[in-house]
């Protein structure tokens, strides 16, 4: 265990160094995509923890990201706190909201939970339009400031975003991985695959589910804060239903139980707009094609993955473990 943990730490450091060097050689667009990639990785990690481990489904994580995004911006603009503090506030406030939601969610089964969280994803972002403190349709500006002077004069804004996002993503994936291999991760897995045996062996199912929902919400809140930072502002339209769909797709692509697979899911999500642009260009480049092709491809990938690899490569291993 300890050995594998130190190997993992080494891998993280290597990835961090690689990301650092890459950000210096690739062009601005790729650097920005790197920031988006980090946002998706964090968002997908929240779904992997919730769905892959605790077995609860959520179609409403886009709404939780909205809560995180708005919290971070409000904290930053009103209290003038630094970026790490505003991110921490986003995590805490979304986790708090998630604990209330999770209390209700722990009592709901599959399709009911899916419908309830879908309702949240449809309704919550538009609610922001109705409160003037949230800036309505125009939203609120989020200016984290220029990169520190010490990084040199040619250090661009996007690179600064990328550094912040990549660092946050590395830390969160590291923490999540540790949670998932801890006592709690094992409890969630047991609860997911055999709820009755799990409660017989002393796992408090309800409490365990609420805990998973709370942690997952906190992570989603951070993803939301990172997303609005890269966008420079927070608006209700930054959190469309398709965002919730996209992160579920990213998680499902890797079989929902694998954080490393989540990185591949995130890569696919970041690549989809580029691929769609390419295809749309070949199809005549009409605005209505290029605006809808990314959603089309994402949905298609989602359906095909579930039909072809319903349990994902990892998940089936998990099940055979259980039955042995």
């Amino acid at each position: 265990m300890h050995k594998s943990r130190s190997i993992r730490l080494l891998v993280f450091i290597v990835i961090a160094l690689a990301a650092f060097f890459l950000s210096n050689v690739v062009d601005e667009l790729r650097v920005f995509q790197g920031a988006s990639l980090s946002v998706y990785i964090v968002a997908i990690a929240s779904i992997v923890l919730l769905t892959g481990y605790s077995g609860q489904i959520s179609l409403g994580h886009g709404a939780l990201m909205a809560i995180g995004g708005y919290s971070a911006v409000l904290a930053h603009n009103h209290w003038k706190v630094s970026i790490p503090i505003s991110f921490a506030i986003a995590i805490v406030s979304t986790a708090f909201f998630g604990s209330i939601l999770g209390w209700a969610a722990a009592r709901l089964k599959g399709p009911y939970l899916a419908g309830t969280t879908l309702a949240l994803a449809v309704g919550l972002p538009s609610l922001a339009n109705q409160f003037s403190v949230l800036g309505g349709e125009q939203g609120l500006a989020f200016d984290v400031g220029a990169p520190p002077k010490s990084l040199g004069s040619d250090f661009t804004q996007y690179k600064w975003y990328f550094w912040i996002c990549a660092l946050a993503a590395l830390i969160i994936v590291w923490i999540t991985q540790n949670i998932l291999t801890s006592r709690y991760g094992r409890q969630w897995r047991a609860m997911r695959s055999a709820p009755i045996s799990a409660s017989l062996s002393g796992i408090h199912i309800g409490r365990s589910k609420v805990l998973a929902f709370t942690i997952s919400s906190g992570i989603a809140g951070l993803a939301g804060a990172m997303l609005v930072m890269t966008l420079n502002l927070v608006t209700p339209s930054a959190f469309p239903l398709s965002l919730s769909f996209a992160i579920v797709t990213g998680a499902v692509l890797a079989g929902v139980t694998n954080l490393g697979g989540g990185v591949i899911g995130a890569l696919v999500l970041v690549a989809i707009p580029d691929i769609a642009d390419l295809l749309a260009g070949k199809m005549g480049g009409a605005e209505k094609i290029s605006a809808n092709l990314p959603g089309f491809i994402t949905s298609l990938i989602l359906i095909v993955t579930v039909l072809l690899l319903p349990n994902g490569p990892k998940l089936s291993k998990l099940v055979s473990h259980k039955t042995k």
Partner: peptide, 13 residues
């Protein structure tokens, strides 16, 4: 759940 969700996205786009 996931398939019908994907279908919703597919039809909308």
């Amino acid at each position: 759940v996931i398939v019908t969700l994907g279908l919703l996205g597919l039809i909308r786009s």
